[in-house]
Nucleic acid binder design. Structure first.
Length: 482
RNA sequence: GCCCUCCUAGCUCAAUUGGCAGAGCAGCUGACUCUUAAUCAGCGGGUUGUAGGUUCGAGUCCUACGGGGGGCACCA
C-alpha cells in the first residue's frame, strides 16, 4: 500500500468516527490519571469491581479478538492494557473501537483490574475519542531506528521509542535539580544578552547576525561569562545563567552548534568553592534521576561517588606524559614524539597541546584537573606566590570536559594587558583574549574576588543518561534542511 | 574541508558470482468475548535516494550529485 492509500484509509476512519458523533480532534478531557499511578492502584479480589479510573494516551498496540479488543495505551508515564468488550461499551462505543487505528489518541473511563492471565488492565465502560492519527506509526516492535529520522521527526521518536522519552525526561530532571541546588545555596538566575557586539568569554568562532534599525552586526554569544561578571561588580553576589550558547564549529558526537551551558559566579569564593559546587550539582542531578552513583557508560561503568580526586595539571603531565612542565626542551621533544609540531610556539601553548593530545584521553574520571599554565588562561586569577599558574580546574569524565572553572581574574590592569596579548602559536580569531573595554571598565569599579563555573549540560546528560551521542540528548539537533 | 561507509514497500529487514525484487509488521477483507509483538485464511502495496554509464541483463559494477552515519581536521 502506498503512503497515500494508508493515509486515505485513515481519513475514512476519521469520517466514520465523526459520523458516530465523536469529535475526531477531541476536546478538553479533565482529571485523567497518569498511567504509572493507575498501575499502582490495588488490584481487586476475584469477583470484586476495581477502582474507577480515567486514562488518556496513544494506542500503541491493538489486538482484535472478535467481540473484544485489547489495546495498549501509552502516556508519558507508562503503558497499560485496555479491555473493550462489545457488550460493555454499547453499540456506539463498539463502532468507535472498530474504527481505532494505531497512533490514535484515546480517553478511557473504566475499572482497574486484572485479566484472567494476570495483565493489569483498564476495563472500559466508555470511550472518548481525543485525536486522529492520519499517518501510520513506525513498526510496533522495533520502533523508529533510523538515526536521521529519529532526530528530524523527534515527535515520532518520542512516542514510539520509550527510552528516548525517558532520556529527555531525565534531562529535564537534571536541569531542574541544578536550579534547585543553586537556589538552595542562594544563587539567583539571570538572563544576559545572547546577541553581543563582542563575542567574548571563550575561544570559538561565533555566528554573525544583523540588526536592521541600528544597522550593526552582532554575534550570537559563545559564553555569558563577561556579562555575569559585570553583575558581580554590580553587587549580585551569587548569580547563574542556564542557557544556550552558539559556536560556529564542526559537528561531532560531542558537538552541536548550539548547546546548553550553566555558568555560576560566587562572590568571595574561589575555584575550590566551585569544585564543591560542581560536586553538589552533579550529585543533585544523579539523585534527581535515580540516585545511582555507579552509572553505566556503554560497556563500562563510571563511579560518581564523591569526593572526586583533584590532581594538578603539572603532576598529570609528569605522570602520564613523563615530562616536567618546566623543562622546555623535554616538552618540545615529547610533543614531537606525540606527532605535534612545537616550532615557533610559546612554551605554554606546546604544553597545552601536549596535554590535550596525551593526557586528556587517559582521564577516565571523574577527576578535577587543577592549576593550569597561566598564559593560556586570560580570564583567570594567578596563584598567590606563583604567577605562572592559574587557579583553574576542568572536570574530566571519560575523556570529556564536563566543567571548567576559575578563581576569576579581577585585576583590571592585568585583564587589559591579557586582552591585548597574543601567544605565539595561537590563532588570532580563535583567541579568548578579545578586547572588551567596557568589561575592563567594569573591573575598575572593583569586582569582588570570586569563583566562576561553567558546566556543559548536554555532555553531562550524555554521561548521566548513558547516551553516546550529543544528538541523543538534544531534542532538535542541527541537521541539514530536508 | 578530507577519508571510509550506508540509502531496497509507511516501518523493520532479506535478495548467492551481475540472472524473475522478497519477508515480517502496518493496511484492506473475513473468523474469533481474556489476548500479550494475539492467531488463522485471503488481498493489495516498489521509478531499489537522484541522474548518467558499462553490460544480452544492474538492488549488486563505475561516475557525479543529494542525504545520513563513523573517523580526521576544527572545537585554547
Amino acid at each position: 500500500m502506498t503512503p497515500d492509500e494508508l493515509e486515505r484509509a485513515r481519513h475514512r476512519k476519521l469520517a466514520k468516527i465523526a459520523e458516530l458523533g465523536f469529535d475526531p480532534w477531541g476536546q478538553r478531557f479533565d482529571d485523567h490519571l497518569p498511567i504509572r499511578e493507575v498501575r499502582e492502584l490495588p488490584v481487586p479480589e476475584e469477583g470484586q469491581i476495581g477502582t474507577k479510573v480515567r486514562v488518556a494516551g496513544r494506542i500503541v498496540l491493538k489486538r482484535d479478538q472478535g467481540r473484544v479488543v485489547f489495546l495498549q495505551l501509552r502516556d508519558w508515564t507508562g503503558q497499560v492494557q485496555v479491555f473493550i468488550g462489545k457488550k460493555q461499551v454499547g453499540d456506539t462505543g463498539w463502532a468507535l473501537a472498530e474504527a481505532l487505528d494505531l497512533g490514535d489518541l484515546l480517553g478511557v473511563d473504566g475499572h482497574f483490574g486484572k485479566t484472567k492471565t494476570g495483565e493489569l488492565t483498564v476495563f472500559a465502560q466508555s470511550l472518548t475519542f481525543l485525536a486522529k492519527s492520519l499517518l501510520p506509526p513506525p513498526e510496533k516492535w522495533h520502533g523508529l531506528t533510523d538515526v536521521e529520522q529519529r532526530s528530524r521527526q523527534r515527535y515520532v521518536d518520542l512516542f514510539s521509542n520509550p527510552e528516548s522519552l525517558q532520556t529527555f525526561l531525565g534531562r529535564s530532571r537534571v536541569v531542574a535539580a541544578m536550579r534547585r541546588v543553586l537556589a538552595d545555596r542562594g544563587f539567583v538566575e539571570v538572563e544576559t544578552p545572547t546577541m553581543q557586539a563582542i563575542a567574548g568569554g571563550a575561544a570559538a568562532r561565533p555566528f554573525i547576525t544583523h540588526h536592521n534599525t541600528l544597522d550593526i552586526d552582532l554575534y550570537l554569544r559563545i559564553a555569558p561569562e563577561l556579562y555575569l561578571k559585570r553583575l558581580l561588580v554590580g553587587g549580585m553576589e551569587r548569580v547563574f545563567e542556564l542557557g544556550r550558547v552558539y559556536r560556529n564549529e564542526g559537528l561531532s558526537r560531542k558537538h552541536n552548534p548550539e548547546f546548553t551551558m550553566l555558568e555560576a559566579y560566587q562572590a568571595y569564593g574561589d575555584y575550590h568553592s566551585m569544585m564543591d559546587l560542581t560536586e553538589a550539582l552533579i550529585v543533585g542531578s544523579i539523585e534527581a534521576i535515580d540516585g545511582r552513583f555507579h552509572r553505566p557508560w556503554g560497556e563500562s561503568t563510571v563511579d560518581f561517588t564523591p569526593p572526586w580526586p583533584r590532581k594538578s595539571y603539572a603532576d598529570l603531565l609528569q605522570e602520564v606524559a613523563g615530562v616536567d612542565i618546566h623543562d622546555d626542551a623535554a616538552i618540545r621533544e615529547r610533543a614531537k614524539a606525540a606527532g605535534l609540531d612545537p616550532t615557533r610556539k610559546d612554551h605554554d601553548v606546546v604544553v597545552s597541546e601536549l596535554f590535550e593530545e596525551v593526557v586528556e584521553d587517559s582521564l577516565t574520571g571523574p577527576i578535577f584537573v587543577i592549576d593550569y599554565p597561566a598564559s593560556i588562561c586570560p580570564l583567570t586569577k594567578r596563584k598567590a606566590g606563583d604567577p605562572s599558574v592559574a587557579e583553574r580546574f576542568e572536570l574530566f569524565v571519560r575523556g570529556m570536559e564536563l566543567a571548567n572553572a576559575y578563581t576569576e581574574l579581577n585585576d583590571p590592569v592585568l585583564q587589559d594587558n591579557l586582552f591585548h596579548k597574543q601567544l605565539a602559536g595561537q590563532k588570532a580569531d580563535e583567541s579568548m583574549a578579545k578586547v572588551d573595554d567596557d568589561f575592563v571598565r567594569a573591573l575598575k569599579h572593583a569586582m569582588p574576588p570570586a569563583g566562576g563555573l561553567g558546566v556543559g549540560i548536554d555532555r553531562l546528560c550524555m554521561l548521566l543518561l548513558d547516551r553516546p551521542n550529543i544528538r541523543d540528548v538534544v531534542l532538535f539537533p542541527l541537521l541539514r534542511p530536508e
